[in-house]
């Protein structure tokens, strides 16, 4: 499932993603993975970039998280 298919403003949890190791570690260090509740706040024109809120703050993310394995809606 692609992250840009996630509904806007719907809280969900990313269980696992399939990106290169360095990026994955950084996303984990920012607290995106491992149980953080996220909400997609905005999608850019081509939906390649997303504005995601988690841990009480907002981050932009690319759709290279498209190889998202599992999203659990809360």
């Amino acid at each position: 499932m692609s992250l840009n298919n996630v509904k806007l403003n719907t809280p969900c949890i990313i269980k696992e993603i399939n990106v290169e190791e360095k990026t994955k570690l950084r996303l984990m260090e920012l607290g995106l993975i491992n149980g953080a509740v996220i909400t997609v706040k905005n999608k850019s024109v081509l939906k390649h970039t997303l504005l995601v809120a988690f841990n009480y703050s907002c981050f932009t993310l690319k759709d290279n998280l498209a190889q998202l394995i599992e999203v659990n809606y809360v």
Partner: peptide
């Protein structure tokens, strides 16, 4: 390649 845009708002 399409690079990450990891940016805190």
């Amino acid at each position: 390649k399409s690079s990450e845009l990891l940016l805190e708002f």
